[in-house]
Write a protein that binds this DNA or RNA. Structure first.
Length: 871
RNA sequence: GCCGAAGUGGCGGAAUUGGUAGACGCGCUGGAUUCAAAAUCCAGUUCCUUCACGGGAGUGCGGGUUCGAUUCCCGCCUUCGGUACCA
């Protein structure tokens, strides 16, 4: 019924007609409030992902030309190879061996493709993934905790897989340089700068004793080369296998490294591990033999995956040398640089042959010259940024528009075959061998002539990297967006997004945009001109403690109360549990009873035979075994933490509930009122009544006690105009600086003031409704119609501030004595400074405080304050 | 460790360029209305002291600059976010 709905939506009964309830419902739906936040499956729209596939094809068919720093067609590169071979190429990438034009022509398709893969912006390479044998899937880094899967607690190992990557590193320099022009927060720019991580140094090749291959290293401190006493390779380094003679030791070590995720290898600074390969490198300047080690602290993906270790000037090298008893040679004398530490590039070179006596800075220049002269290597810029892994072994994602021939050479499907659609499957899980679910559909995968489709799918950031362009021309069937529309809309003027996207989404989108710019498809270099980081609405996450060690082969959950009492949290992994199952959600005493444990098991069948232990007893196999007869139910305390609201944390609160109770306008304004847009805070509805009350009071201004529209057509009073224009002024300013919480306060003040005046002036209220319309669009649309208009309020002109309407004749000045406010005094608004300085000395308050002391100085800031200095 | 942000009543927060600290809202207290409650309205609400007038202290801590500091500078502490054996 209308009345009921009106109360629920916080709408004044006077304006809740059936028609408007209908309007609310459709409009809420239109702006997304009907979205079902809990649904698990994303919809993939082929009309949209067709163009994601199309962009992928462009990436595949292009390479990055270092000469003019832009993307160029692979076909042009092939032409170049046909005419000149590899000689003089400036393209990005490394060729294993040089080839001539005639050699190129003699290569077969496979060989040619292997070479081209070194250049393509979308290419295939072997990458390591977190593989969980028990679950049969690849896991994301944050799904792995302490070498175990977050789901189920099974062991996770590093597994090499041939996967698609995007060569974002090609754009590293432009991504870095173009940051300067963007209207983004400094903190966000800094994050991207650090993520790109540009460092200048030298590439140096070290010969291996009794071996043909060289070890290529990158160092930012080539000056310390005389202090290099050993070499370290990443355990995955391709040379490890061929140079190793200490086979047993190395194999054992590699087994160990497999169990360590990247994140752990990096985070666990204190753990110093490694193995000696048995091989030696030759120092290019001294000819000394340097033992070659492998160690997890050297990362396969940074630099060249190999270092020269200088224990005297690098902390990690030093720890390593000390643990394994390796030589340390001091090469930088830091006396004279008292406050400097190992990280500072200062000091005087010692024990360094030709470099002796030079300052570090000079030494770096000189040694690079020497290295280049001797053909040992060259000056090089290195980036921390890595190419983006672009393959997922999941169902939901864009299929690759790629077909492999019999020899496994990838080719793109022709454009008229787009979109390559996802096949319908009976089972959406990856296959037992860890192959993508799409491999289950043999008919879809296998094509004529032994050709096969790529069965991996693209990650979530594929589609999200360019959606803003599709918004510019969403129904275009010939192009991702027409040239006309991208020329018209250009970049996104204002992008509002969370900091969590700082180095992910925002980096990928910039990369794609720059690529499309290179190819002439968009007119701008950057996708997002101005960026505001809105804070996240957080939620309370409820965790169960799961023992890392199973008990008799069964998963074992422990009551949070027991865990905290014993203080051994490190023995447990925290498993998030759906908040709907939790009793007393939000209180410190939140817990699961038998019923909720059953629900939990239903949703997570892998815990079917788990043990749930609490102080009252043990719940296992659907039975509760009480420790004492009076305990009849389980009481498994959960551990509560504030964190982001996320499906993976099972703590999403559906805004529909709030909308149902208060209406979309109140919900919208309350979110604004919570605090500054950048601030993150837990969702808390305690103050929402204040906003609901405000909106009701505002509506009440229009109606009499019988709920009839009752507005006065008189000319507005001076007082009323002053309230209106003060409000317009403040709202104008606050919108400009995205301070929506203070906008809401300003509206509240205006309404309170008008109520005090018993104002119901038509002109004033009409202007106020327009002013409020962006904040409470539904209510304002309705009120505007009630005032007799038949156009939409959202098409009217926004009120404009008129300073003459707020001019005061008198100003109340605060009087401060020695900076502390002691009273007030009223002066005419046009009183001049000298006048006030003079008159204030006769003021009672000043006299009282000056009693027996002298007035030393009077400071008057016109229109603001008066300060009297007394001594 | 590094990078970034922040620290203000019981709570969310305001104070825009160095100029009245605590706007606005929640909560709480008292009152009106009511048979009563909810709702609504009115008043109060930083802390200490005082019957009151008034006075003192006060924006994480310790210093400094200034007539005047939540705001600027120096040194600490804490929290949050990001990130990392980056050679």
């Amino acid at each position: 019924p209308a009345e009921q709905y009106a109360i629920q939506t916080g709408v004044h009964p006077a304006i809740s007609t059936e028609k408007n309830i209908q309007m609310y419902r459709t409009q809420m739906k239109n702006i997304g409030f009907s979205y079902d936040w809990s649904r698990e499956i994303k919809t993939c729209d082929p009309d949209y992902y067709k163009w994601t596939q199309w962009i992928f094809i462009q990436l595949f068919k292009n390479y990055y030309d270092l000469a003019d720093r832009s993307a160029k067609s692979i076909d042009e590169l092939i032409e170049y190879f046909e005419d000149h071979g590899s000689e003089g190429h400036t393209a990005f990438g490394n060729l294993e061996k040089e080839f001539t034009a005639s050699e190129w022509q003699s290569f077969n398709t496979k060989k040619k493709e292997d070479i081209l893969m070194n250049f393509r912006l979308a290419y295939r390479q072997t990458t390591y993934v977190n593989w969980c044998e028990a679950l049969g899937t690849v896991l994301a880094n944050d799904e792995v905790k302490d070498g175990l899967s977050e789901r189920g607690g099974h062991p996770v190992v590093q597994k090499p897989m041939l996967q698609w990557s995007l060569r974002i590193t090609a754009y590293a320099e432009r991504l870095l340089n173009d940051l300067k022009e963007l209207d983004w927060s400094d903190s966000l720019k800094t994050m991207q700068e650090n993520w790109i991580g540009r460092s200048e140094g030298a590439q140096v090749f070290f010969e291996i004793a009794g071996h043909d291959d060289n070890i290529e290293i990158f160092t930012t401190r080539p000056d310390t080369i005389f202090g290099a006493t050993f070499m370290v390779l990443a355990p995955e380094h391709e040379l490890v296998e061929s140079i190793t003679t200490n086979t047993k030791e190395v194999e054992a070590y590699l087994e160990y490294v497999k169990t360590r995720t990247d994140r752990e290898r990096i985070a666990d600074t204190k753990r110093v591990t490694g193995a000696f390969t048995g091989a030696f490198a030759i120092h290019p300047f001294t000819g000394k033999k340097l033992p070659i080690w492998i160690a997890e602290y050297v990362l396969k993906d940074y630099g060249t995956g190999a270092i020269m270790a200088v224990p005297s000037d690098d902390e990690r090298d030093q720890d390593f040398a000390e643990k394994f008893d390796l030589d340390i040679i001091n090469v930088v004398d830091k006396t004279g640089y008292e406050d400097s530490d190992v990280h500072d590039k200062v000091g005087t070179m010692i024990n360094s042959g030709v470099l002796n006596g030079l300052e570090v800075e000079e030494a770096i220049k000189k040694i690079i010259d020497l290295i280049e002269d001797k053909g040992l290597g060259k000056k090089k810029v290195n980036y921390r940024l890595r190419d983006a892994n672009f393959s997922r072994q999941r169902y939901w994602g864009e299929p690759f528009p790629i077909v492999y021939d019999k020899e496994g050479v990838p080719e793109t499907v022709s454009l008229d075959e787009l979109p390559v659609e996802l096949p319908e499957l009976d089972d959406y899980k990856p296959t037992s061998e860890g192959k993508s679910p799409l491999a289950r559909d043999e008919e879809w995968m296998n094509l004529e002539d032994g050709k096969k489709r790529e069965t991996d799918t693209m990650p979530g950031f594929a589609g999200s990297s360019w959606y803003y362009l599709r918004f510019m021309d969403p129904h275009n069937e010939d192009r991702f967006a027409s040239g006309k529309s991208v020329d018209y809309w250009k970049s996104v003027d204002l992008y509002i997004g969370g900091t969590e996207h700082a180095v992910g989404h925002l980096m990928y989108a910039r990369f794609w945009h720059k690529f499309l710019y290179d190819k002439g498809y968009v007119p701008t270099v950057e996708p997002f001109e101005k960026l505001i980081n809105q804070g996240m609405i957080q939620g309370l996450i409820e965790y169960l403690y799961l023992r890392k060690e199973k008990t008799n082969g069964r998963s074992h959950f422990m009551c949070a109360g027991i865990v905290k009492k014993e203080g051994n949290e490190e023995d447990y992994i925290k498993i998030p549990v759906l908040i709907d199952y939790v009793n007393n959600y939000g209180s410190p005493a939140s817990y699961l009873d038998q019923n909720s444990i059953d629900q939990f098991i239903d949703s997570r069948p892998e815990f079917e035979d788990a043990i749930f232990e609490c102080t009252r007893g043990v719940y296992v196999d659907g039975k509760f075994e009480a420790h004492r007869p009076e305990n009849s139910d389980s009481h498994l305390l959960t551990h509560s933490e504030i964190g982001k609201m996320s499906k993976s944390k099972f703590n999403v609160i559906n805004p529909d509930v709030v909308v149902e109770e208060y209406g979309a306008d109140v919900f919208r304004m309350y979110e604004m009122f919570l605090g500054p847009i950048e601030a993150s805070k837990p969702w808390d509805t305690h103050g929402i009544d204040g906003v609901a009350k405000f909106l009701r009071k505002f509506i009440d201004l229009f109606f009499n006690d019988e709920d009839q529209l009752d507005v006065s057509g008189d000319a507005p009073s001076k007082e009323e105009l002053k309230i209106l224009h003060n409000t317009i002024h403040k709202i104008e300013e606050d919108i400009e600086r995205f301070s929506f919480n203070t906008c809401v306060s300003t509206f509240m003040i205006a309404v309170n003031d008008l109520r005090k005046l018993n104002s119901n002036n038509r002109f004033i209220l009409t202007e106020l409704v327009k002013l409020l319309a962006p904040f409470a669009p539904f209510t304002c649309e309705e009120l505007y119609e009630r005032l007799g208009h038949d156009n939409s309020i959202h098409t009217t002109n926004y009120p404009v501030f008129d300073p003459s309407k707020v001019k005061e004749e008198e100003v109340v000045y605060p009087i401060s004595i020695n900076g502390k406010k002691r009273g007030e005094a009223t002066f005419s608004a046009d009183a001049d400074k000298a006048q006030i300085e003079n008159d204030i000395l006769e003021n009672d308050i000043v006299k009282k405080w000056a009693d027996g002391k002298s007035v030393k100085r009077v400071i008057v800031v016109p229109g603001r304050m008066i300060n009297v200095v007394i001594q």
